[in-house]
Amino acid sequence: MSKLSYPLLDVSNLTMDFGGLRALNGVDLSVKSGEIVALIGPNRAGKTTFFNCITGIYTPTHGDIYISARGDKRRRINGMKPNLVTRHGMARTFQNIRLFPTMTVLENVIVGRHCRTHSGILGAVMRNSRTRREEQESVDRSYELLEKVGLQMFADELAKNLPYGAQRRLEIARSMATDPFILLLDEPAAGMNPQETAELGELVLRIREQEKIAVLLIEHDMKVVMRLSDRIYVVEYGQGIAAGTPEEVSKNPAVIKAYLGEEHDA
């Protein structure tokens, strides 16, 4: 408990070049345990690029990304393969939903258990007691997660047949199946109606309270961002322009000029 505010994710001076285009320019960000942090900015500001860099899809040009699970030592994950990043405890969802469409909802979640299970070819063929026990644990854990996101009644449906909002929640359940200590959500509320958005907010809060998972989210819906986040980072044109609590950020003149001033019409 003494390490309650230990930084789980610590990104400093992150820079990403695509040829001559600098998509990210020296962005700093950190997420401490138990926090919900939002990353906001206008379209094309580099938010998703930031996610792709820290989850290993891109190798950043400069900068350092460190993660450290509770009580674990700090680990630099620059250029690490995406599957290893997930294995080390950082899971993500995608802006444009990326489920496994022709697998069932339950199977989608069980796939998430892959990096926490070990049975190999021989185990699969022999189906010995160890494999069976592992399979059963995966299935039970997956059902449990489906219940948490309220999808248990769809367990045997194909993922592609789910309504949009349910697909988003399934993606969250699937990434939680990898037992992360930090969850990255890329625009989880995009395309949702107000009620679905409210439910999603509840879900994110529950994830933090019950599962003790920290959350870093990209979101355009300001109501969601202001309600959920403990801290907000703002990026524009690949630069970090502000950071702080929701109140601080919403009063920051640079942010108002860059972002809220243009977008805020409520």
Binding site: T86, R116, G120
Partner: peptide, 21 residues
């Protein structure tokens, strides 16, 4: 099995498959 599901996940979406570890 675990491996069969990994194969199917790979078939369905390579990037999501990697993101699942």
């Amino acid at each position: 099995s675990r491996i069969g599901r990994a194969w199917m996940a790979l078939r369905e979406d390579e990037i999501a498959c990697q993101a699942m570890g």
